[in-house]
Amino acid sequence: MSQGLARSTLTHLERLEAESIHIIREVVAEAENPVMLYSVGKDSAVMLHLARKAFYPAPPPFPLLHVDTTWKFRAMYDLRDKMAELSGMDLLVYHNPEAQERGINPFDHGALHTDMWKTEGLKQALDKYGFDAAFGGARRDEEKSRAKERIFSFRTASHGWDPKNQRPELWNLYNAKKAKGESIRVFPISNWTELDVWQYIHLNDIPIVPLYFAEERPTVERDGMLLMVDDDRFPLQPGETPVMRSIRFRTLGCYPLTGAVESSAKTLPEVIQETLLTTTSERQGRAIDKDAGGAGMEVKKQQGYF
């Protein structure tokens, strides 16, 4: 690693890495029962890697929590289980029992799917295990309202977020004090950009879901989005036939809600190259931000979405 070189000016990635590790350690030192939210995406992959670095040679002293919707890509479940084993951490998988019982799915229920499986599921899981601090992989460059989110984001006992009532964050001094029932969401990679994440994965050889790389996959085109037919739960509409296309994904979520891009990028440098030359922003591929007009993500956050 370049880290070992005897020189006094750190690169931006070295500074970002050091800052993130510092944040993760502060939380573990000051919170009673922390957890890392693990979504299996590339940002989660980087966050998990940083946690492993922070506590090496010990495994990170907290569990991973996957708030599952049962509708993720199969390749994501594979990597999730592999990484839990590699890191030596406990993996907790949570399914909202009500969503499961009512058979909530992205094809029939639209926004309710995200609300019940993810937003409600997350709140239920945090309450169930009594976690008082949860790491999330959100970045400030992803979306406008996130640019103002603190690294330690304070939540009420009912998981609400009040953008007007956040604690000032000075230097690298984080205030993790809270009353019983209250919790904090912590974003250790707040200051990373999409390019930083990709480059860090490249330099550290961090395992990511193969769906980020281009391959021939069965797809249908619907509402201007290219969807992958990942399993036989995908209801084809009259006249629709899956077509093999060379595609990859810029972000990963529930497969029926995640749009693919046509691509031939099979290696990380090619993926990065495509990312840099592309002209649509990352979250464009996800349906979630389009709800409720331009303020979609902000409203979701106030309701408790991560």
Partner: peptide, 11 residues
């Protein structure tokens, strides 16, 4: 791996 030196700003 072990480092032979570390400087201000590193964790």
């Amino acid at each position: 791996g072990d480092l032979d030196q570390a400087v201000a700003g590193q964790s």
